[in-house]
Every structure is written in structure tokens, then in C-alpha cells.
Design a protein around this nucleic acid. Structure first.
Lengths: 224, 224
DNA sequence: ACCTGAACACCGTTCAAGT
DNA sequence: ACCTGAACACCGTTCAAGT
């Protein structure tokens, strides 16, 4: 490509290396996440991608955990809008399922959300949406306030546990085997339940869990 | 210490280096956990403690995740017994609070439990205990089966989030600030709730969460 | 079979020095 | 103020070779 006529001559003709900004760093991190997963979103790898040294990133990002939190908030931008139709319960479940679906794609991000409390703008929007749906359903504000936490925690933890990780499959197998091999003499209830402990598709369990949570939140008063 | 009379002379007089066993490895790992936290329970550090090279540990332990899971099951041995007195609800809450209290001491272990499904003997005992309490409360078996997962997930995730980590305090502060600075025009519900979103002692929130969960589990039928 | 030294391929973070 | 090279102090895991 030759220089376009009329374009003011910039200091560098071909900016092989755009200036570092927090947004640019987060955008590059999201790109790596999408292409290769969160385990590759490291300071060193990111620096390499941005054609600089890892030390340079510390001007814009406090540490790796904060970087991961910023990535999560970025992806949170794609969920959080409640649909226009349906009962408040249906719309509430819809939003929470959209949130979970996003995290299912990136279980490691769900794990980091459980560890490092998010506090970005998209996360706050999500909280606001959930609160207004609970309010619409007549849930007392104090219960809604604590309930939002419970709902998001369940959604996040479910994604962290069941998300499509090659590694986690082995754990599930091990648990399945352990439950199957159990003796009815020492563990009668487990033996009696048979496969019920691990039955059901993840979506069905998530959905049931959300409904149970909502039912509990509606009718459990907060202390004092 | 001199050799005791009557003791058969063993091949090594002073066993400076006891033979490696899986149990010995796990015991050493628990000791490091107690003294310095899970982040120090690494293959290299553990090998150093056992006076060998890290490669030797792979004979007994598949990888770091499995090691951490074994450590968790070891600590799980101290909880799981329901008290003899009280209603089924009280005893159920008691067991779950004991479980959470243990994990509160080791939030990083809670995090690893959320990632790597435990399947050790002590974990199975805990499940059996919870199932029998729910059964005593007349909760239908299918709901109890899925409910146990919900209860343990809540307890584990709460410990992972609120556990006494120096690092996590900053995140909570950031969220507190973000919620406080919010505009009532864009986020009316959050603004209206004021501090209610983050109010309450961790124990009170855990206790409320467990009661809400139990209430929901009791009255939400599983599909089909 | 069990154990090991050595190597491979990485990490996060800090800091003194440069521009 | 922003950026960097270099270093410090670590990681997990594999593998060929030894006993």
C-alpha cells in the first residue's frame, strides 16, 4: 500500500507498533482468549503479541488477575439485556442462561470470576437488570439484593464446573466410577439413588437450580 | 536415640529418607498447606520437602490438580459428622457450615474443589450424610440428589469468594466503590439499595443462602 | 517397578536505566 | 511519564538413563 493522497503525513508511516493503551491491551487479551483460551493470556504472551516486553504492561494493568477481570467484563458486554417478552421469571432465567452460556465457552474465566470479584461497568449493568426483574416479581429489595449474588454465584460456579474443559472430563468420570462402586452397606442413600446424583443434562440442571434458587429467594426473609 | 533392644535390625539404621508412598506425599502436602498455603503446594516444593526430585512424585500422583484434590479429601475427614441433636434442618445447616468453615481457612482449596470434582472417600461420606438428612426431612430423592450438588456448590463457592485471602480484599473494595459511585439515573435499583448489596456478615449470608437453597430444593420438582 | 538428573518450555513481577 | 532489558525466583511435566 502506498500513502493515500490528502492524508496528513504522520510521524511514522507504517505504525508497526501502535501506542500501548489499556483498551488495546484488553482487546489483545480478548483475542488471545478467543483463539487459545485463558491459560494463554499471560503477561509474557500478551507482551509478545503487542511487540513489547512484559514489564511495559504493568503501566496499565496491576497484575494478571486484574487483566483477567477486565477480559471478563469485556465479554459481559454481550449479555445482560433482558428480552422484551415473557413473564419476569422467564426473562430472569433468560438473562442468567445467557450469562452462563458465555461462561460455558470460557470455564477458566468463570473460575477467575469466582476468585476475583468483578466490578466493571458491564457487570454492574447485569446486576441492575437482575434487580429490576426481581423487583418486578415483587421480591422484597433486601432479599433481591442478596438473591442476585446467589443467582450469579450459581451460574458462575456451574460454568466453572461443567464448562467444556478436556481436563475436567476425567474428574467427572472418576466421580461416576466412585459413585457406582459404592457399597449399599456403608452408603445406602447413594446406592439407592443410583445414577440420579449425576443425571440430567447440564442445561436442565442449571435451569432447575435457577428455579429452586428463585423459589427460595422469594420466600426466605433476610435476618432483622 | 540409640537402637531399642529387641527391635529387629532394619536395613537402614536411621531412615533419613523414608520410602515414597502416596499417603506420605499427601501428608507432606497437607503439612505445607497448613504452614504456607496451597500456592506453595507445588510438585517442586513438595519434592524438596521429601528430599527427592519432582519427577519422582509422578509415580504416585498424576498431576498437580490430582494432588490438590487428594489434599482436600484429607481435610474433609474432619467434617461430615452430623450432630445428634436438633431438627434435620439444623443438623443439615450444621454440617454444611462445618464444611464451609474448613474451606474458609483454605480458600484456594475451595477454588480447586470448584474446578476439579472431588471423588475421595471423605467426600462420598459427606454426600451420604447430606442425602440422609434431606431424606429425613421428607425431600423427594430426585430433588435431594440434585439439591446436594446445589448445597455443596454454594458452600464451596462462598468459601472461594470470601475466604481470607489478602488479595481478594482489594476486589471487594473495588466493587464497593463501584457500587457507591453509581448514578441513580443509569442504575436506579442499585442506587436505591445503597449498601444492601454487600451488607451482612459472611456467616449470615451463608446461613441465609443455605436456608433459601433448602427452601427451594424442597419445593422444586425435577423435570419429568 | 521405581526412582532420578537434567532438560524443555514456560511463568509473574520488579527494578534500574533509559527516553 | 512512559517504556524497556535484564534479572530474580520460581513453575509443571517429560524422558532417557539408571538401580
Amino acid at each position: 500500500m502506498t500513502q493515500r493522497p490528502g492524508t496528513p503525513r504522520s510521524r511514522r508511516e507504517r505504525p508497526a507498533k501502535p501506542a500501548l493503551t489499556r483498551d488495546g491491551i484488553v482487546a489483545a487479551a480478548v483475542a488471545i482468549l478467543r483463539a487459545e483460551g485463558l491459560q494463554k493470556v499471560t503477561m509474557r504472551r500478551l507482551a509478545q503479541e503487542l511487540d513489547t516486553g512484559p514489564a511495559s504492561l504493568y503501566v496499565y494493568v496491576r497484575n494478571t488477575a486484574e487483566l483477567h477481570a477486565a477480559v471478563l467484563d469485556e465479554l459481559l458486554g454481550t449479555v445482560g439485556q433482558a428480552p422484551a417478552e415473557g413473564s419476569w421469571r422467564e426473562r430472569l432465567e433468560h438473562v442468567l442462561r445467557a450469562y452462563t452460556a458465555m461462561l460455558f465457552e470460557h470455564p477458566s474465566l468463570a473460575r477467575s470470576a469466582l476468585t476475583a470479584r468483578p466490578s466493571g461497568p458491564h457487570y454492574l449493568n447485569l446486576i441492575e437488570t437482575l434487580l429490576s426483574l426481581l423487583d418486578e416479581g415483587g421480591v422484597p429489595p433486601a432479599q433481591a439484593a442478596w438473591g442476585v449474588d446467589l443467582l450469579l454465584q450459581h451460574a458462575t460456579a456451574t460454568a466453572a464446573e461443567h464448562g467444556a474443559d478436556a481436563a475436567s472430563e476425567e474428574d467427572w468420570d472418576a466421580l461416576r466410577r466412585a459413585l457406582h462402586d459404592i457399597s449399599g452397606r456403608t452408603h445406602p442413600r447413594i446406592a439407592a439413588l443410583g445414577g440420579a446424583l449425576l443425571s440430567g443434562a447440564p442445561e436442565d440442571r442449571l435451569s432447575w437450580g435457577l428455579r429452586a434458587l428463585i423459589a427460595g429467594i422469594e420466600r426466605t426473609a433476610v435476618p432483622d
